[in-house]
Amino acid sequence: MDSKKQNLFNTKDPLLTIAEATDYLRVSRATIYNMHSEGRLKMVGVGGKRFIRLSELEKQIVELR
């Protein structure tokens, strides 16, 4: 497996689904997509699905403080 794929599936920084991300931040799906379109939240595509790294969500929590 090449290093890019290894980084994608890093278990120390898991990938969350959009639904999991909304639960984690307690926001709506629209808010998640707005944050992404504003460039505040990076998403990863795998097999036609979108995921968000836990570390990306944690950055948003720090930003809100």
Rank of each mutant, 00 (worst) to 15 (best):
L15H: 00
D2W: 00
P14A: 06
L64A: 15
E58Q: 15
K42F: 07
G47R: 07
T22K: 13
G47F: 01
S3Q: 13
V27N: 01
K5E: 14
V46P: 03
Y24W: 12
E63H: 12
S55T: 10
G48T: 02
R26M: 13
K4Q: 10
A30L: 08
R29V: 09
I32Q: 03
A19Y: 09
I32F: 04
S28H: 05
I61Q: 15
K12A: 05
V46K: 06
M43A: 05
T31M: 11
R53D: 00
G39F: 12
L41E: 03
H36T: 09
T22F: 07
R65K: 14
L41A: 03
G39Y: 02
L64E: 14
N7M: 12
L54H: 07
M35T: 06
L41Q: 03
K49P: 03
L41W: 00
Q6S: 09
K59W: 02
T31F: 12
D23Y: 13
V62H: 03
A30F: 10
E58K: 15
E63T: 12
E56D: 11
I52H: 05
E20L: 04
T11W: 07
T22A: 00
V27E: 09
L15M: 09
A30Y: 08
K49S: 10
E20M: 11
S37Y: 08
N34I: 05
E58S: 13
S3W: 04
R65G: 12
Q6L: 15
E56N: 09
E63M: 12
T17S: 15
D2Q: 01
V46L: 08
R29Y: 12
T31P: 05
F9R: 02
H36F: 05
L57G: 00
L16K: 08
D13M: 02
Q60N: 13
L57Q: 02
R53A: 03
